[in-house]
């Protein structure tokens, strides 16, 4: 209220000078206009960097576009062809397996880490900072380190295992389809866990201590305090974090590209790496765009469902 009064007074005191460019500037005095003016740059960025490429990709996906050549409209032909291509079907399965297990690990480990960090007293800031490291280091860089560690010649896991007498020959981490899947999932979980841990920790810290005290008075043990107090209260945060993570995990590229390039025998290809191989390495932009967009409807449904639950959660 006070601000509005001040504003009126100031305007009275200092009338706008009548130069040719002053009158458009008068619009800036209007909060409604200024608000839109201030978010306009962000809007332009979104239109230019998200909406425009998306529309172009949509156009490519329904065309026989090849790098450097004009494409022709082919309807849904690319999508139909993809469904008949065993490598693509394999990629769809890979992507779902990858996302499901990576997410499972990230939720589990992130939760455990957050609970641990909440109870750390000594060196609290150091540990909270250190936990974030995998998330901060550029993925391409940290994945190269993983690639060296998983390499058959320098594999440190097999070396340790063999020296501890656990096995005589460890698994072929990047050369066997099963272990290659395990490898990319583990590295993704390693990188993504800090995001979960820190977000969940933020949720945990916000839970009032009274609730735990009250639960304790009612005789609730540690496990039921977690189930009935902690879990319901961090559910909204957990849902948002999972939503974001699902989208990013499905769209992962770096880890697979650095570790396996989609191999062995296409067993770790994700949508992004297959789209890259088809659209850019083979120059078939149309087919590549179709691969990249195939997931779009799935993600839209995921987002709608998740947001619905989040809204329901907060309404309660």
């Amino acid at each position: 209220m006070k601000a509005t009064v001040d504003l009126g007074k100031t305007l009275e005191r200092q009338p706008v000078r009548s130069s040719w460019w002053a009158s458009p500037l008068r619009y800036l005095e209007k909060e409604g206009f200024l608000g839109y003016a201030l978010i306009a740059p962000a809007g332009v960025l979104i239109l230019g960097l998200v909406a425009y490429p998306f529309l172009v990709a949509l156009g490519f996906a329904v065309s026989d576009k090849i790098v450097g050549k004009a494409g022709h409209f082919v309807g849904l032909q690319n999508f139909v062809a993809l469904l008949q291509w065993p490598v693509f079907v394999q990629t769809v399965l890979n992507s779902f397996t990858f996302t499901f297990f990576a997410l499972l690990l990230k939720v589990g480990l992130g939760m455990a880490l957050a609970l641990l960090m909440q109870h750390i007293v000594w060196g609290k800031n150091f540990f909270r900072g250190a936990v974030l490291l995998p998330f901060i280091v550029p993925t391409a860089l940290s994945t190269v380190a993983w690639w060296k560690m998983l390499d058959p010649q320098y594999n440190i896991f097999n070396w340790i295992g063999m020296h501890l007498g656990l096995f005589t020959q460890g698994p072929n981490w990047l050369g066997d389809p099963f272990w290659a899947k395990v490898s990319v999932i583990l590295v993704n979980a390693w990188r993504g866990t800090p995001f979960f841990a820190i977000s969940i920790l933020a949720g945990l810290v916000a839970i009032p201590q009274d609730l735990y005290d009250a639960a304790k008075v009612d005789g609730a043990g540690a496990l039921s305090r977690f189930r009935h107090v902690t879990l319901p209260l961090i559910k909204p945060i957990l849902s948002v974090v999972m939503l974001v993570s699902i989208i990013f995990t499905f769209a992962d590229f770096d880890i697979v590209y650095v570790l396996t390039r989609g191999g062995p025998t296409n067993s770790t290809h994700l949508f992004a790496t297959l789209a890259y191989q088809t659209g850019l390495a083979s120059s078939k932009l149309g087919e590549g765009a179709a691969i990249a967009l195939f997931l779009f409807p799935v993600l839209v449904v995921t987002v709608i469902v998740q947001l619905h639950f989040i809204r329901k959660g907060t309404d309660e």
Binding site: D151, Q153, N172, G175, A180, T260, P264
Partner: peptide, 11 residues
Amino acid sequence: TDEVLSWDDAS
């Protein structure tokens, strides 16, 4: 040995 199954061009 199965090393060759994960070789790249430098391996």
